[in-house]
Amino acid sequence: MNKIFRYECQRLLWNKFFFGFLGVLLLYGWQVLEGVTLSGISHTAPFSPWSFGDYLSRMMPLLWTGALFFLTFFTSSAARRAAVLTDAAPFSPRGYALTRCAAALTGTCLITFACLAETAVFYRWYFGWQDWGTLILPVLTVLVPALVFSLGSGWLLGRIRPWLLYAWMLFPFLCRTLPLPQTACIWNGSFFARYPLTLDVLDPPFSLPFSTAAVQTVVLGIGVMLWGIGMCWERK
C-alpha cells in the first residue's frame, strides 16, 4: 500500500504540472497579498483572520482547480488505458482508489500549505507578525470544506464523465460573480468584507454566524458523502 501511495504521489507531484501550478499559485497569491490584503479588510489589520480569510477566499478557486487537476491524472485517457492492467493486479480496487485519493489529498494539502507559507512570509516581511494560531479558523472555514467538497465531488464526477471535471473547475469562478445569499457568501468572497462590519466592534475576533457555519459544515459533509459514494462505486 505504501509503495503504491508513494508511486501515486510521485506521479502527481513530481512533474511539471505540479511545479508549474505551484509557481502560478504563488505568483497570483503575492499579487493578491500586495494588491488587496495589504490594505486590510473591513477595517481590520492585514494580518487579521478576516483579511486572511478574504485572501483565502480569493485563492480558493485556484486551489479548487488544482485539486481537480490532480484528479484528472486518474481519469485521463492514458490512465483509463492503464486501468486494464491495474484492475487485473491482485489488489483491492477500493484500496487502490483510497490510495489514489490519499495522493490527491496530499497534493492538495501541499499546494494549500504553499499558499499559507507564502502568507507567513508576507506577514513576516511587512509587519514582523507571526501569531499564526489566530489564522487556523479561517483555514478551517474557507479551505477545508471547499477542498474536501471539490475532491469528493470531483472524484464522483470524474468517474461519471472525465470532462465533467473540467466543467466543475469553473464552479468557484462562477460563484464569485453571483449574488449569493448571506449564508453562502463565503463562496463569492463577500463574507469577509461584510460580516465583520455587522459585529459593531473594532477588530472583532473571528466568528461565524450559525447559518454560515452550518452551510460550510453541510458542504464538508456533502464532500465526504460524495467521496464515500465514489468509493462504493469503485468497489462495484
Binding site: G20, Q31, G35, R58, P61, L62, G66, F69
Partner: peptide
C-alpha cells in the same frame, strides 16, 4: 511551452484572474 492542457489552463486562469482583479 508546457505541452499540458491542465497546466496551460491553470496558467491562463491565473493570468486572466490577475487582470480581472488585482491588476
Amino acid at each position: 511551452f508546457t505541452r499540458r492542457a491542465d497546466l496551460s489552463l491553470a496558467i491562463f486562469a491565473a493570468f486572466a484572474g490577475l487582470s480581472l482583479t488585482v491588476w
